[in-house]
Design a protein around this nucleic acid. Sequence first.
DNA 1: CTGTTAGCGCCTTCAA
DNA 2: TTGAAGGCGCTAACAG
Lengths: 363, 363
Amino acid sequence: MGKGKRTRVTLRQVAQEAGTSASTASRALAGNGYVAEAIKARVVAAADRLGYVPDVSARSLKGRSSGLVGLVVSDLRNQFYAALAAGVEGSLAAAGHQMVLVDDHGSDAQALEGARAFLAMRAAGVLLAPVGRAATELLVEHGTPVVEVDRRSGARGCDAVTIDSERGARDAVAHLLELGHRRIAMVLDETMWDTGRNRLKGYRAAHRDAGVPLSRRLVLDLGLRPADPGADVAAFLDANPGVTAVFAANNVVAEAVWQELKRRGSAVPRDCSVISFDDLGWMRIVEPGLTAVRQPVYDMGRQAADLLLARIAGERGRAQTLTLQPEFVRRGSTCAPGGTARTAHPSPPGGGAARGVGSDVSA
Amino acid sequence: MGKGKRTRVTLRQVAQEAGTSASTASRALAGNGYVAEAIKARVVAAADRLGYVPDVSARSLKGRSSGLVGLVVSDLRNQFYAALAAGVEGSLAAAGHQMVLVDDHGSDAQALEGARAFLAMRAAGVLLAPVGRAATELLVEHGTPVVEVDRRSGARGCDAVTIDSERGARDAVAHLLELGHRRIAMVLDETMWDTGRNRLKGYRAAHRDAGVPLSRRLVLDLGLRPADPGADVAAFLDANPGVTAVFAANNVVAEAVWQELKRRGSAVPRDCSVISFDDLGWMRIVEPGLTAVRQPVYDMGRQAADLLLARIAGERGRAQTLTLQPEFVRRGSTCAPGGTARTAHPSPPGGGAARGVGSDVSA
DNA sequence: CTGTTAGCGCCTTCAA
DNA sequence: TTGAAGGCGCTAACAG
C-alpha cells in the first residue's frame, strides 16, 4: 500500500522481496506444503508490503476451475428472483465463492449465451432457473455441476430445488372452495414452465377433490410480458361476471389482478376474493392484506447453493430434487362469496395459519 | 456436441482436428491476423464439432483483464439495489461483459473483501455503492476503473453516478410546508452516508427557505438494521404528538412508518401526511397512494455501467460525477394538516406532477 | 524444508 | 499466409 502501482505485483516479486523462490512464496501464501515459520512470515510481510493480490486466472489455468459460480434468473427486477439471488449469494459468499449473475429475460437464447460464458470462465458450478433445457444440457455435457432452481427443465444430470407448486395451488384453491366459491378464476402468465403448469394442475386437482366442475373459460393466460395485463384482466372479468374469486399464479399476475379490481371499484373480498401464489411485502401492507401462498424463496436460493457447493466439493451420487413446501397464509382478501359469513379478520398482524411447512427429498 | 467429455477441449485439439497449427486456429477463431478462408472455415467447423469453448483464464493471463465487472451493493433484497443491479446487468450484458455481484450487507469489511476478490479476478472494472472509502481506494490504487453509484465515498480517482438527494428532499419537504405543515418529522436510518446526510440537508434547507424553525427532536434516526423499527417509530410518534407529517428518507423507513401509522389507526393523510424518498411499486398500490420522490434507479445503474464501460475502453480524462434528478410524485398521502383544504386527489392513476426531471454533469 | 523444472491454454512476435 | 517459439502467473512434481 502506498504508491499507486501500474504493474501488478507478481508472486515472483514477492519472493524476491522476501529473498526466497517463487515456489516457497507460493507455499507460504497458500498454506500448502512445508515452509519454515520464519520464511513464511517474511513472505507474508513482503506480500503485504507490496500489496500482492494472487491472480485467479493463473491459478485456475493450472487447476481445474475458477471459484466463480454462475446464476441465471429471468428478471432481476422481480422481487422473487432478487430474493433468490440474495439467498444464493449469501451461501456462496460464506463459502468463499463469487456469484456471476446473468439475467436471461426469459429468453432461451440468452440463457444459453450465459451458459457459454460460464463455460468460458470455467465456472465451478451453475445455478439456474431454467427457461429451456439447452443451457442445462450444455453445461452438464461439459461436466459443470448444475442445480436448477424454482423450475425444472427436464434435462438430466442435474440437481434441483423447487417449490411444490401443485400442492400450494391446491391448498389455496381448496380454501376458496371451502368458503363456498364455485366460479374461481385462475390467472397466469405462462404454462410452458412447470411452475405455471403445476399450479394449474393444483387448481384442477382442488376442483376435482371437491367435485366442482371445471371450466376452461375460467383460466386466463396473460402470457409473459403482456402489453397491458390490466386490460386483459378487465376484459376477462367482464366476460365472466360470475367469478367470485381469483387465484393468481404469481406475484406479477397478482399485482395486475389487484390493481384492476381496485380500478373498477370491486370490494375485496366482498365482491371478489383474491389469492396470490408468492407472498411479497406489499401484500402484507395493502388493505385488506392478501391471502397468499408463501414460498421460502431466499431459503430456496440458499439450499440450492448448498447443494451445488456439495457437488463442487466432489460429492457423487444420483441427481437429487429437493422439494420445498409453501405455506398458506390467510389474510383479509378471502371470504365467502358475497361477503357473507366472513370469517377472516381484516388483516391479522402476524399473518395467518401455517400449513405444509417443511421440506422433503425425493430422488 | 454429442458425447459427454471429461477433458476440456483445447485450442490445440481444435487445430489438430482441423489439420493446422494452434496459432492459425487462434487467429481463425479470434479473427485477428491473416487466415485463408478455407482454413478458417475448417477451424470453425472443427471447433464447433468438438464443442470448443475458449478459456478466459488463459486469455486474461496473457492479456490484461478478464471481461468481468464487479458490482457491490448493500442489500440485494432491497428492491432499490435489485433494480440498480438490473440496470447494471442490462448495460454490461449488451457489451458482452459478465457481472459479478457481491452483497456487502452494509459492512465495510465485506465490501473490501469483495474488492480484493475483484482484484484477484482481474476485473475489468468495478461498480459499487460505497459503504466506506477503503474498497474504492484499494481498487483505484491498483488501477482498476471504479464508478461509485448512488452514494459517494469521497475517495478520489473514480467516477460516480448519484441522485440529487438534497434537492429531492427539499422539494418534498417544501411541498409539506406549502400545505401548511409546521411540525414535520424526518425519519432515516443512517447519516453516515451522503444519501442520508444530503436528504437531511434538504429537509433543513426547505425549512430555512420557508422560515420555519427546526427542531432536532423531529429527526429520528433508526440506524441501519434496527431491531424493531416499528417500535422506535411508535415511541417517537408518542413523544411528538404535534407531528402532522413524516418525511421518510428511503423505502425501508417509509415502510416502517406506514405500517406503524396503520397499526395505530392513524388516518393518512388526515391525521398524518407521509412522503417517501424512493418510489416502490407498493406505494402506488396502497390506499391512499404514497406521495414519493422517485429515483431513476434502473437508469442510474445503466448509466453507471456505461460510464465504466467507457473507462474500460480506455477513456481518459478527469473523474466525472453524474447527478440524476429525482422526480416528485404527488399521490394521496399528503394534504394540509388536519385534512382541511385537501387538494390531493385520492390516488391519481398516473402519478402526479413531475419536477426536476433530467440530469446534469459536473466535474 | 527449499529451489528448480515444467507446464496449464492462449496469444503474439518472429521467421519462413 | 502459416508455423514455431516464448511467456503470461502460478503451482505441482521432483530433486537437493
